[in-house]
Amino acid sequence: MSSAVMLFTVFAVILVLSALGVITARNPVHAALFLVLSFFTGSALWMMLEAEFLAIALVLVYVGAVMVLFLFVVMMLNIDLDRLREGFWKHLPLGASVALLMVVEMILVVSSKQFAKMTTVSNTSGVSNTQELGLLLYNQYVYPFELAAAILLLAIVAAIALTHRRRKDSRYMDPAMQVSVKASERIKIIKMPAEREL
């Protein structure tokens, strides 16, 4: 067994086991951490295919941003585990049939004649594919790339205009009002009858 096959086996086994962990872990935080692990091993597999840009993007975007956000949400929401598990048996038939359908579809795709025609192309240009992608993105496709950037700016402006302008219920402090407050405004003494004994 060559070292590449060995590495692949190791990563593949970890990937499958951690993916199983995602759906079997009782604690959602553990499930999210298993997902992080499966992303990492997935990116290692991509790295072995010399697709280093995709591998790095997967780690940076999914592990670095999306999953961290996900973990925060899971931790903060304090999800009730037992309620999540309710109806597992009720939904099992539907879930199982969807899964079966996906397996059948995958078999159909992999066993088709078109799939056999696919060949792998090795990178012959001598530069990394990150560089290749960069050159393509900043040369041939620079115009749509810049337009996408402008659309992102527009989205920021639109979001701020729609949510933060003149909002009555947004909480902010006015230092001038804080300073000029009088003692009589801070405390109010009201008379009320003594509480009856129970």
Binding site: Y143, P144, L147, A148, A150, I151, L154, A155, V157, A158, A161, L162
Partner: peptide, 19 residues
């Protein structure tokens, strides 16, 4: 002069108009 650019222009218009 390119479908992608046409679409990006359209999205820019729609998004701004919606806001």
């Amino acid at each position: 002069n390119h479908f992608l650019v046409l679409y990006l222009g359209l999205e820019m218009l729609s998004l701004a108009q919606c806001a």
